[in-house]
Design a protein around this nucleic acid. Structure first.
Lengths: 223, 223
DNA sequence: CTCAGTCATATGGTATATCATGTATCATTA
DNA sequence: TAATGATACATGATATACCATATGACTGAG
């Protein structure tokens, strides 16, 4: 029997803050003060504090030397590093997925790519970001490698807040879906190396489009 | 000027617990109860609780469905996965290091490998584990890739508690140092791919020796 | 004897009070 | 006016009190 575990306030605060951060609700540099957030959510500071610490551990927030917790800037250097690591890990996951993916899962991925042009035409950023995420993680989940999957999720969290800006680049989205189709073909052919390569290209392409939209300010000091 | 940030009790508790876990002081399956640990360290439960949560986030501990925090078992499956990811990430870091390492750093690494046979003869497990770590991270630090470095550190934490058992395998240690010398040669030659390959082989070799020593019990459920 | 139910205790979660430290403002002085 | 020091306030860290739930032992019915 599946054990169900109740959600603590820390869990809920964590999820709410993470969602807000991913949606880009807080500007980089913005400080999250425990009491203020606690009041906003109508709970005591303790669970908020713990949720914030959890987000710091995941690098979605950073702890400054003054011990205040702020939304980090994403420096070009850091972004380049994240992209490089993502290419390696997501390529590895996709390669494994190519050797394991079922026809049914392949069909689901095809459906997702089919929906993307629609979201594009409607200029629906949220829908696009959501579909893009579903496509990528639909693949990575097939890798049957839970640790790898969670590491990739962590990395996405760090670039996530900046992801919606991809849509600003009109040239990107159509190209991205072309790349997605290439990925699908190679997945269908169970071409592990080819898939890894295509995924890395997809990531790199997005990165090149995203780079100019990054804030050019110095990165907030990590602890 | 370098900002110095005071250490909180949470930080200290975290460090102390991590050290104990890495040293293998707690057996897998052992539950860490907040009040008990707090009493042992002579502080209040709050910082302990936060330190434990931090360790859970890093997967050095796991949260059970009953919300008790226990030292995880390392299943063969999980160990295999960790090894696979380590080969990729540490290989990548070492490859970058090959293109950046200085003669001075190379010399320091050579000194470390020179000290290892001595630790071996003295049957000094601690010294050996320490030197091995210094050797590997001495390389990875040259990769100039802080996120990658911290990800590798996280992975080491997860296998760390089982690392001391490598010494049980009399055949391993001498082979390991041979592999270290190969790594050094290729680093000196700035052969990035060769270094990555050698590091992966070193990791795999250790994993093969370590596997039989793993507990064969079911993995504790993650949340 | 076995099982179920109940109670006591252990233990995690949350709120709150208090302390320590950082930050900003303002007044005083050179 | 500029620098410096003091004071008040903001805010993070810690301790403690309290609550909810899980666990385990005990008791009584079958």
């Amino acid at each position: 029997m599946l054990k169900l575990s109740h959600e603590t306030l820390t869990d809920r605060a964590y999820a709410a803050l993470k969602r807000a951060l991913t949606a880009g609700d807080f500007a980089p540099g913005h400080a999250l003060v425990i009491r203020t957030v606690a009041e906003a959510y109508g709970i005591s500071p303790t669970p908020i504090r713990e949720a914030l610490q959890r987000l710091v551990a995941e690098r979605m927030l950073v702890l400054q030397a003054n011990r205040s917790i702020v939304v980090p800037f994403l420096s070009a250097r850091r972004f380049e590093e994240l992209t490089r690591i993502r290419c390696a890990l997501e390529g590895m996951a996709a390669g494994r997925a190519a050797q394991r993916i079922s026809l049914r899962q392949l069909r689901e991925l095809r459906d997702i790519t089919g929906d993307i042009p629609d979201a594009m035409e409607r200029q629906d950023v949220n829908a696009y970001v959501h579909l893009n995420r579903a496509f990528h993680f639909g693949i990575y989940e097939c890798a049957d490698s839970p640790i790898l999957l969670s590491m990739i999720e962590d990395l996405w969290c760090q670039v996530g807040p900046f992801f919606t800006r991809l849509f600003d680049d009109a040239a990107y989205v159509p190209r991205a879906n072309d790349l997605h189709r290439v990925i699908l073909e190679r997945l269908a052919a169970q071409d592990a190396d080819g898939v890894a390569e295509a995924v890395a290209l997809d990531i790199d392409t997005a990165a090149i489009c995203l780079a100019p939209h990054l804030e050019n300010r110095a990165e907030v000091d990590a602890l």
